[in-house]
């Protein structure tokens, strides 16, 4: 199984500079927090989905649909129980906290879908290079990109070790919660050791190739900010500005919610 969400497609979203994609992602997080009215948030969600459709990345929704549905249910129930409002609906449930729960569910779902689209159109190498070109120290960006690259390898090692341990009689499914957690020890120790033991060789390999030797780094992957990036950022800034202006003049709020 490949845990990565990246989809190799040829769309204008894929062509964008990774820094532009990062700004669009952060901007979408802000946009999700501008409105509180579920109707307006549904509009924001529609925009995000349209963007995902243009990026040909909505196929990944199949991998996270259960999270989106569960967020909707749990958020609505939690806020209906914990929040207070002014308009009784049924039993102890009031209209405002129920609407607030739906709004929060939409907010979180928007950020999850935006994150999914970002990861569907951006390779790990682009994320690392983008971070470094944004001024994040190279060693930090290197650690992030190396970790991202190693996750599938370690997951595969864990799966192999799990099969080996099961063939020797390891039972992960029996016992109470504490016993089940304790059953993971024969898995976690070998996964940890098999990964960590490569640290010294890995470090020597890096240093033999001049890791950290020079002050100014060059990158194999070259990224550049072009006209497409400028257009995307200007269009998004207009949408975000319009949304903030709408909210400022009184649209898209939710009256009567008491927290």
């Amino acid at each position: 199984m490949d845990p990565s969400l990246y989809l190799d497609r040829d769309t204008f979203v894929h062509w964008l500079d990774p820094r532009t994609k990062m700004f669009l992602l952060l901007g979408t997080f802000v946009l999700a927090f501008v409105f509180l009215d579920p109707l307006y948030l549904a509009g924001v969600m529609a925009l995000v989905l349209l963007f995902g459709y243009l990026a040909e990345s909505l196929v990944n929704l199949r991998r996270i649909w259960f999270i989106l549905v569960a967020i909707a249910v749990v958020s609505t129930v939690l806020w209906a129980l914990f929040g207070s409002g002014q308009t009784p609906l049924f039993l102890f449930v009031e209209r405002e906290p129920l609407l607030y729960g739906i709004a929060v569910a939409l907010r979180i779902d928007i950020t999850v879908v935006a994150g999914m689209i970002f990861l569907s159109v951006t390779r790990n190498e682009e994320i690392a290079t983008g971070l470094a070109r944004l001024g994040i120290p190279y060693r930090f960006a290197f650690a992030v990109s190396t970790a991202l690259r190693l996750v599938p390898t370690i997951a595969a090692t864990g799966s192999t070790i799990g099969q080996a341990q099961r063939s020797r009689g390891l039972d992960l499914e029996s016992g109470n919660v504490l016993e089940r957690i304790r059953n993971y020890v024969p898995l976690l120790v070998p996964v940890f050791i098999s990964t960590i033991r490569s640290t010294n060789v890995f470090s020597m390999a890096l240093e033999s190739k001049g890791f950290g030797a020079g002050q100014k780094r060059t990158f194999f992957l070259r990224i550049s900010f072009g006209w497409r990036d400028a257009v995307a950022l200007v269009v998004f800034a207009a949408i975000l500005g319009g949304a903030i202006a709408l909210r400022t003049v009184g649209y898209g709020g939710l009256e009567g919610f008491g927290g």
């Binding site: 650690a143 190693l150 390898t153 960590i196 890791f211």
Partner: peptide
């Protein structure tokens, strides 16, 4: 460099 590698490996695990 060893600490950088340990950050990456810890994060990956």
């Amino acid at each position: 460099t060893q600490m950088v590698v340990l950050v990456a490996l810890s994060a990956a695990i």
